[in-house]
Design a protein around this nucleic acid. Structure first.
Lengths: 239, 239
DNA sequence: GAGTGGTCTAGACCACGCA
DNA sequence: GCGTGGTCTAGACCACTCT
C-alpha cells in the first residue's frame, strides 16, 4: 500500500497520530491525555501497544507520566526541561540559571545564512532579538536570536520577553521546541563582545550556533550565543 | 525489606544482572547472547520482561539486535558507534574520520587534577598518550590522553596504538566505554599548539575535556583535545 | 473506592537469515 | 524448516493519587 516503508507497525501509526495531535494542539502543554485504556479503545488497539508508544514519547520528553495521576503533555518550564537546551555550567557541572538584560527586538529581512538555517526564502521577514545574559549577576553570554515572522506573529508587541523563550514559543505561539542542532567553535571576542562582557582584546570566546526544531522537525529558531569561558564551560554528557 | 529502592522491579533486576555479566565479559563484544526464550527460561521470567530489558540495553548502545540472527554485545568499531564519541565535523554536519600521527606514550605519576578526574590517589601511575590528529590530511587536533596504569597493564608494550583507542580498550583490556562527560571552552593556542597545527599566535582554539566512563560508571580515561575550529566545529544534536 | 499508570505473564503470529 | 528477533493481544495484579 505505502511505498517508502512498505509496512508500518501499528505502534508506529499510533505514534504518528499522537505526535500530530500534540503538534496541532489537540491537548495543550500541561493538559492530561485520555487514559491508556481510553486511547486503546478509541484507536482500536491493545493496552500494550498504546503503552509502548506513550513510553517512547515520555523518553523523548514529549510527555510526562505520573503514576496515579495521568499522562500529560510536557511543558518547557518544568524542572529538568529547563536545562535540556542550556548547557552552560561551572567547571565540574553545577548549572546556574542565567538572567536576561538589555533585550532588544526588531524586524528585518533575513540574511542569506539565516535563510539557509531556517529554510526561508531570501528577504522573508524575521525578528531579531539580541540580549545579554548574566550568570551570577555578571555578563557572560551575548545572544542573537532569529525567528521567522510568519511563525511568531506580532512577537514584537509583547512587552517583556521572558527569560526562557521556549516557554513563550509554546504558550503563546503553540510551537514546541523538540530538538536542536548545535555547532560550537572558538573565536576572538569582537569589539561588541568586549564592551558588552567586559573582556580584553584578544580574549577567546565560545561561539554556539543552534537551530531549534519543532515537533514536526521544522526549523523554527536560529540562535548564536557568544560565551565567555574563563569561568564557564559548555557541559555535555554522551551516552 | 530493602531501604534504598524499597522494591526493585523484576526487569530492573534482570537489567542489572545482564549489565554485570557483560561488564565481566561473560559474553565478549561481538558475541551472541542466548536467545530471548533461553534467557527467559534461565532467569525464570517471561519473554516480555526479558524483551523489555534487551530493548533498553539496545537503546543504550550496549547491545545490537538483528532480526533473524540474534542479540550481540556491541563493539566500538562498528558503524555508528565510531562517531558516538567523536563530534568534530565540517560546518553543516559532514563527519570525517581523523588519522593519528606523532603518537607518544610514557608512564608517570598522575597529577592532582588527573587524580580528581579519574578517582585516583595522588601519585598513582598513569599512562600519558599524546598525539596529533589529522583531518583531511591536515593537523587539526592535539590530544593528551591519561589512563590509569592499573586498568591498562602493559599498555606501553603495544607496538602501534590504533586510531580508535576505544576499540583497543575493549578488545585488549575488557573495558567498554559506555558514557562520557565533556566540558568545552575556548582558549588561545599555546606555543605547542601553534607549532603542531601551524597556527599563528593569538589564534583561538576549542578545548574539550572528557572523562570516559566504563559500563559500571567508573572513570577510565581523561582526555584533553585541543581543536582548531577555523575549518571545523563541534557538532551535537540535542533531543 | 475509583481511576490512573507500572509491572508481569502467556501465547499467537509475522519477518528475517540461514542452511 | 528452523531459530531468531519483531509485533500485538488480553488479562491479571500492584502502586499511587485523589476524594
Amino acid at each position: 500500500m505505502n511505498d517508502t516503508p512498505g509496512y508500518r507497525p501499528l505502534y508506529r501509526q499510533v505514534y504518528d497520530i499522537l505526535v500530530r495531535k500534540i503538534a496541532e494542539g489537540a491537548w495543550k502543554p500541561g493538559e492530561m491525555l485520555p487514559s491508556e485504556q481510553t486511547l486503546a479503545r478509541e484507536m482500536g488497539v491493545s493496552h500494550g501497544t498504546v503503552r509502548k508508544v506513550l513510553d517512547a514519547l515520555t523518553a523523548e520528553n514529549l510527555l510526562l507520566r505520573r503514576q496515579g495521576k495521568g499522562t500529560f503533555v510536557a511543558e518547557h518550564d518544568q524542572d529538568r526541561a529547563l536545562f535540556r537546551f542550556f548547557h552552560i555550567a561551572r567547571p565540574g557541572g553545577e548549572r546556574l540559571v542565567p538572567q536576561s538584560a538589555k533585550v532588544k527586538i526588531r524586524t528585518r529581512p533575513c540574511r542569506a545564512i539565516e535563510a539557509g538555517k531556517l529554510a526561508l526564502r531570501n528577504k522573508d521577514m524575521v525578528f531579531e532579538i539580541t540580549r545579554l545574559r548574566l550568570i551570577g549577576g555578571k555578563p557572560a553570554i551575548r545572544e542573537t536570536i532569529i525567528l521567522p515572522e510568519r511563525l511568531f506573529p506580532r512577537l514584537d508587541r509583547i512587552g517583556d520577553l521572558p527569560n526562557t523563550l521556549y516557554s513563550l514559543y509554546q504558550s503563546q505561539f503553540g510551537i514546541t521546541v523538540a530538538a536542536a542542532r548545535e555547532e560550537l567553535r572558538a573565536a576572538l571576542a569582537t569589539q561588541d563582545d568586549q564592551s558588552s562582557m567586559g573582556l580584553k582584546a584578544g580574549t577567546p570566546i565560545l561561539v554556539i550556533g543552534r537551530v531549534a526544531l519543532s515537533l514536526t522537525g521544522q526549523p523554527v529558531e536560529w540562535r548564536e550565543s557568544r560565551v565567555r569561558t574563563d569561568q564557564l564551560v559548555y557541559a555535555v554528557t554522551l551516552q
